[in-house]
């Protein structure tokens, strides 16, 4: 867990610290079990290859979860996630590093709430954004 981020500490354009993860096939099996998504392309290599994939691919929903984890970890325990979006633009593979990156896109207030929109994404080792997304978080104020 990161430290708490306060509304007063953020400004548009500010970068979120990058985070590198390296999901393994084992993690994909764990995710299949925990989520109930047992589509074979996520753990059965011969099956994945038989339908024309280069190998086992990471669940889109797991990448979605990684982005959620990234932004909530940055925002800190007293923040609340309001919205999380992502697009699946490219495949990612277990055993390769995936880097989560992001920046603050907008800082604003709505009623009493302090809101921050972030642009976030996952990047493959070639530097391509395979999973671009956005998040809106409610941040506490230093008061």
């Amino acid at each position: 867990m990161g430290q708490q981020i306060y509304f007063e500490d953020v400004s548009e354009g500010m970068e979120l610290p990058m985070e590198v993860r390296e999901p393994t096939t084992r993690q994909l099996v764990q995710y299949a079990g925990a989520s109930g998504d047992f589509y074979e392309i996520h753990y059965d290599k011969p099956y994945a290859e038989s339908i024309g994939l280069p190998g086992i691919i990471i669940h889109g929903a797991l990448k979605n979860a990684m982005l959620g984890s990234y932004v909530t970890g940055w925002a800190g325990p007293a923040s609340t996630l309001r919205r999380l979006t992502c697009q699946y633009r490219g495949m990612d593979f277990p055993g390769e590093p995936i880097t989560a990156k992001g920046h603050v896109a907008r800082v604003y207030q709505e009623g009493e709430q302090n809101l921050v929109d972030c642009t976030i994404w996952l990047e493959n080792p070639q530097g391509q954004q395979t999973t671009p997304g956005t998040a809106t978080v409610v941040l506490p104020s230093r008061g």
Binding site: Q30, L62, S69, G73
Partner: peptide, 16 residues
């Protein structure tokens, strides 16, 4: 237990 297993599967150790 399901929440804990899911959090472990996504690699998130947030104590929440």
């Amino acid at each position: 237990g399901h929440i804990a297993r899911f959090a472990e599967a996504i690699g998130d150790d947030n104590p929440a």
